[in-house]
Design a protein around this nucleic acid. Structure first.
Length: 581
RNA sequence: GCGCCCGUAGCUCAGCUGGAUAGAGCGUCGGACUUCGGAUCCGAUGGUCGGGAGUUCGAAUCUCUCCGGGCGCGCCA
């Protein structure tokens, strides 16, 4: 049960009955627990239309709510706040239901969708560095959340495997290595690209050769095609182990090259529909002309946007804008998706607005969303630049995180775990720390990259949650109890710690839905952190195994629920829970 | 030139569609009983929410303006 949704519906109905109006109850969790669990702020909003004081309206609503099974008390405070205190009996029953439910009380959406999630999207001939973490980790978590609430999700790795860079790579290979690609690895490829780019900017003849190589590749020249395949294979050999370590798997790997055959027809269609026109030899979409050309202005800021989106260059080559339009068409027509999410850097927001506007104009029945995220900055607050070699590779970051986790374990090896097992656990803890550190941030804000922060093992960190989970496991291990078989009629919330813990546990279903709907995994990390905190308090002050009778059963039930939420929550974030650490 | 994003404690960040006294982590200082795991817990410290004006019962949140930072905008991806 989504508790807040349930309460809101209940109060809304009560207001309807008491005042005869349908109004948003403005239900909010209280900031100060001393005031209650939730508050209603509707009285302020209703004062005007009801021609009465907020205080009086609040009194009437509060009166009408008396006796509702959910609440232990309903009190009017201040100028018109209504403070609600949940009844422990009701809470205990809902918690018992959650415990007995495979889905921990999280309902499925009523209207499931088929959703493509476009994420990670690394480029060929580049190593993955810390900047790639966000899209990959965010995308993975968002997919898990959406699946869990009942959507059908297709995760797609839209590889940057086509375009101008291949002309440069091929030309550089011929220029600097006599065309010999043997013995090349990813850093060799990176160096080739770097050198090639520099050479192209200095030497027009070389730049021209690069263009010719690209043209040959696009025309299907066998030799260049083989080189291209080799570059792609080399890059994949490098990045696949990283996905493996991160536990990320894609349903599709449809890179840009996949859409190549669709580009010509796509541009043709844009021209026929009058969405694009030719200008200076290129095919362009002028959004500021839509009103005049198509009868309806382009959405939002595009209506006044003078610079066009180019979909075909003067030299006949297509661009990534063209690819992205073709990709939308494919996702709608072939994959039959009714929604696509793009987990991509905020800097591309204008680009996506343009692509989405065009797709919508073409009339494809698919909702498109840019799930953007902020930049990763360096210590001086400047964006982390990948080209200048400053960026730390993802592999190195993960190595260091595992190493640190291993060292902590070694120094506090309370269970005499073997070195082999320690390595396994350290892997889960280290990677978990990195993922958590990234996910706990609001995706929209930029953040400062701090090596130590990303592998923090204390405080609000992944290991903190894993640790709480391990302590839960420890209790059941010690007591010889299987948490999965536990059932109670009602959880007893007697001490302040138990009640407070129960209160947090009740929010899980609501949080899952909100996090999924907003595409904000950090809402879930916040919940897990609050939960782990409450559990730590409970753990220190409320003996579980050493208590007796109904109290013991109830505390075991609470503990099991904590374990289940941590397990499920971490799973949704892509973080492994551990038995011991 | 046009547009987008951001400015909250010493540092790094939360603050959901406007709600009561703005919260965490890290840091610093002090503390935790023979008890289920000390990667833990408790307490203390710390803020003109960039400045100003406006909207209203109420603004970190909405509007305007200024200051400061980042980013994006015809032939890269």
């Amino acid at each position: 049960m989504r508790v807040e949704q349930h309460l809101e519906a209940r109060v809304r109905q009560t207001i309807q009955e008491a005042l005869g109006v349908d109004a948003d109850p403005l239900l909010r969790p209280t900031k100060d627990p001393a005031l209650g669990d939730y508050q209603l702020n509707a009285a302020f909003a209703l004062a005007k239309s009801q021609k009465s004081s907020p205080r009086q309206i609040a009194e009437r609503i509060a009166q009408a709510l008396q006796g509702a099974p959910e609440f232990a008390s309903v009190e009017v405070a201040g100028g018109g706040f209504i403070n609600l205190r949940l009844s422990e009996e009701w809470m205990g029953e809902v918690l018992a239901q959650m415990l007995g439910d495979q889905r921990l009380g999280v309902p499925l959406v009523s209207r499931p969708e088929r959703i493509v999630v476009d994420y990670s999207g690394p480029n060929i001939a580049k190593q993955m560095h810390v900047g790639h973490l966000r899209s990959t980790i965010l995308g993975h978590a968002i997919i898990s959340l959406l699946r869990f609430i009942g959507h059908e999700v297709i995760g797609d790795n839209h590889l940057g495997d086509w375009g101008t860079q291949f002309g440069i790579l091929i030309a550089a290979l011929r220029e600097f290595r006599g065309g010999d690609s043997s013995g090349l690895d990813i850093s060799g490829l990176e160096a080739l690209y770097r050198d090639g780019t520099r050479k192209a900017s200095e030497d027009p003849a070389f730049a021209e050769r690069a263009r010719l190589e690209l043209a040959r590749l696009q025309q299907g020249d066998a030799e260049n095609r083989a080189l291209w395949e080799r570059f792609v294979a080399l890059t994949r050999a490098e990045i696949e182990p990283i996905y493996e370590r991160l536990g990320v798997r894609f349903d599709l790997w449809l890179g840009e090259s996949f859409y190549q055959p669709m580009l010509g027809p796509t541009v043709q269609m844009l021209l026929e529909r009058g969405i694009a026109r030719e200008d200076e030899g290129a095919v362009c979409v002028f959004f500021n002309e839509w009103k005049e050309r198509l009868g309806e202005a382009a959405p939002g800021r595009l209506a006044n946007h003078k610079e066009p989106l180019i979909v075909k260059k003067r030299d006949g080559a297509y661009l990534y804008s063209t690819t992205d339009i073709a990709t939308v068409i494919y996702r709608s027509e072939e994959l039959r998706a009714n929604r696509a999410l793009y987990v991509v850097d905020m800097r591309q927001s204008l680009h996506f607005e343009q692509v989405f506007a065009i797709a919508k104009r073409l009339g494809y029945p698919i909702e498109l969303e840019h799930v953007g995220f902020g930049a990763v900055l360096d210590a001086e607050g400047k964006p982390l630049k990948t080209r200048e070699g400053k960026a730390i590779t993802l592999a190195a970051l993960l190595d260091e995180a595992e190493k640190r986790a291993f060292e902590v374990m070694k120094s506090e090896n309370i269970f005499e775990i073997s070195v082999d097992e320690m390595a396994l656990i350290a892997r889960a803890v280290g990677i978990g720390a990195v993922k958590y550190a990234d996910l706990k941030q609001n995706r929209l804000s930029d953040y400062v990259f701090d090596f130590d922060k990303l592998i923090d093992l204390k405080g609000n960190s992944g290991p903190y949650m894993q640790y709480a989970g391990a302590r839960v496991r420890s209790i059941f291990r010690k007591g010889g109890i299987d948490p999965l078989g536990l059932r109670v009629k009602r959880v007893l919330l007697q001490s302040p710690e138990e009640r407070s813990l129960g209160r947090v546990l009740l929010r899980f279903p609501e949080i899952i839905h909100r996090a999924a709907q907003a595409r904000e995994p950090h809402q879930l990390t916040d919940h897990l952190y609050a939960l782990s905190r409450e559990f730590s308090l409970f753990f220190e002050r409320c003996p579980v195994l050493r208590s007796e009778g109904a109290t013991r059963d109830s505390r075991l039930a609470l503990t099991a629920l904590v374990g289940a939420q941590i397990q499920k929550g971490l799973e949704l974030l892509g973080i492994e829970a551990v038995e011991r650490m």
